[in-house]
Design a protein around this nucleic acid. Structure first.
Lengths: 141, 141
DNA sequence: ATAGAAATGAGAATCTTGATCATCTGAGCG
DNA sequence: CGCTCAGATGATCAAGATTCTCATTTCTAT
């Protein structure tokens, strides 16, 4: 049960929070904007406010349940934290997001930071390109 | 003269554009928000609108004269494009920005992208940490 | 100098996200 | 099982960043 995650985070188990967690777990894209979650909830017949979605997502982020990513600048996307850190590749054409993890890059980042006198705490790495995958519809969402 | 850059970019040579270029060239931090440029212009006695600053910076970006960076999320910063590509380290404490370039990271990025079926066009890499430099005032701007 | 196209400035508009506050809901207790 | 109250919600408002609109002004070419 995910409710244990909520309790562990000191968050009361409420309907909106469970529904939002559910959507994050069942989403195919795994990277959703607050608005997308909001619309999905409305479509499911839930009566929820957009402010609640933002509030809950911010709390989830603080609790380490989700990550907030700025993949294209204006609208943040949220993804369920499933343990492993990873970075992202975004297709300029269709907006598809792939995840990757590269130990060499991670290591070099730490080395570079150290070399510049920084104790690295976090990083944001996003690659942008055209996915040559035949599944790419080659038109933006 | 920088005016040649403007002409080459197909942009009319106007006072606001030259002043903005000047500020970007003479700034010590090399990473300025639109508002910072705007305020500096006002302080110099120029009569300029904030909208013009944003407009001009966007045009400069399209012309390849400046880069727009999202170092901390809410406000974009602009830096003069001086040829070499580089990435950034930001101090969580004092906000200081350092630039770096690491060929290993660049290469691995291309390899990772190719491996995932992407033709990489661009990337954004920002490291966040605490700068142990004694020059760091250890308090946010 | 002049005309026409492009650029500017002021403010309105938009978009995303956070704040406010009255109302409602969930967890513990009798 | 119903009660109570802290905490959560929803509607609206608000803030911050950036873009749009449009009347006026400024370059560039003639």
């Amino acid at each position: 049960m995910e409710t244990s995650n909520l309790k562990k985070a000191g968050l009361k188990v409420t309907l909106p929070r469970m529904k939002i967690l559910e959507i994050l777990e069942n989403s195919e894209t795994r990277h959703l904007t607050a608005e997308a979650i909001y619309r999905e909830l409305l479509d499911s017949g839930e009566e929820i406010g957009l402010a609640t979605v933002y509030r809950v997502l911010t709390q989830f982020e603080a609790a380490g349940l989700v990550c907030r990513l700025h993949l294209e600048g204006n609208q943040a996307v949220f993804e369920l934290e499933r343990g492993g850190h990873h970075d992202h590749i975004v297709c300029n054409q269709c907006g598809r997001v792939e995840e990757f993890f590269d130990e060499t890059i991670e290591r070099r980042q730490r080395e570079v930071a150290q070399h510049h006198g920084f104790a690295i705490k976090d990083h944001a790495l996003v690659l942008y390109g055209d996915c040559t995958d035949s599944a790419c519809p080659h038109r933006p969402a």
